[in-house]
Design a protein around this nucleic acid. Sequence first.
DNA 1: ACCATTATTTGACCTAAGTCAAATTTCTTG
DNA 2: CAAGAAATTTGACTTAGGTCAAATAATGGT
Lengths: 188, 188
Amino acid sequence: MTSYIDRINTYIKALDSDTLAALQNISSEKHFKKGDLLLRQNEVCGKSYLLVSGIARKFYLNDGKEVTTEIYFENDLAVSFDSYTLQRPSREYIEALTDVTVSVTHYQAFQDAKAKYAKLLTLDLMLAEYYGMWVENRLFQFHTLTATERYLDILDKSPHIVQTIPLTVIASYLGISLETLSRIRAKI
Amino acid sequence: MTSYIDRINTYIKALDSDTLAALQNISSEKHFKKGDLLLRQNEVCGKSYLLVSGIARKFYLNDGKEVTTEIYFENDLAVSFDSYTLQRPSREYIEALTDVTVSVTHYQAFQDAKAKYAKLLTLDLMLAEYYGMWVENRLFQFHTLTATERYLDILDKSPHIVQTIPLTVIASYLGISLETLSRIRAKI
DNA sequence: ACCATTATTTGACCTAAGTCAAATTTCTTG
DNA sequence: CAAGAAATTTGACTTAGGTCAAATAATGGT
């Protein structure tokens, strides 16, 4: 499934200059500082953010507790999927975990561009497919792995997450309490 | 999110006759009997099944135990998403829970049709978006609701599931043991 | 209707992970 | 560098839901 990202990137690199130019025309770089919110709950996610540098995350509140749903690094595309797709209020926040630079694209501009450039439509499909598989896989892991196994998996597949990010965030991303995560770490 | 299905159906109904004909050309009706497997683990999901009538489900095995991932009714589209998208072996099975009639479309035929008919590409995007939001929501529920709340939710939003389907299947769909489900039902 | 499966319920006990509270360790920033 | 604030760890206890086993229903086939 990771290889699908490669396929997407290959696809982007192979875009004709017209399509590429159209994409660049509707994108612009922006900076956020650590702690800034790129998207707030109840706001419509009207933009997509391609991380150029830095780290960000998406989370929601479940009776006062933050639940991290996704962690973004360089080249990741940050959006609240359903809010973006349906253009309705988001239940999630997007927050900069470090200073970040992003390439911002407006929803409507991208919709318009898709109508003109069929390849962007295909790209959008690939991105949606990728996200679908990614979430499906996450759900699968929650069902089949124990807390310890999930931590080991992240340690194995995404060591950069464990390096840089506060345990509170990692715990909520793994769907376990901070204390449990700390105990898991103490064991291994 | 349910309303997105309506939008998809509206979109399908509004398709021009050419596109619609193309779609029909690559689809054919087929029957399965209760208990038949439309897709087996390790098979590549090379077809999509639109349920015309009957009930089906998708599931995988987690050390011997069946975990139901989706339940299909009339008009639902049954595929193993990642297997279909990547055309690689499936970890899931698709099984007829009753006798079913389906409209079968081959993966490659649909790919070809998408290249010719842009509207099918858009349709595919909508379907992928819908699935992404659906899974995301399922994950969300697993994180925020207790077993009882999840059962009540299904009872509320999809009473037809509880009517017709064996508790073993429902329990595995809710991610709880059969016994726990039975106890939940005894309480309410 | 009757037997044999298959489905569901009930009981007793167990366990992974959560909660609350306090102790440390590690960063920040003056 | 020191003081305060955050982050992390540790301890004691609770709990939702799981597991194993046995008892009752239901159901379908003959």
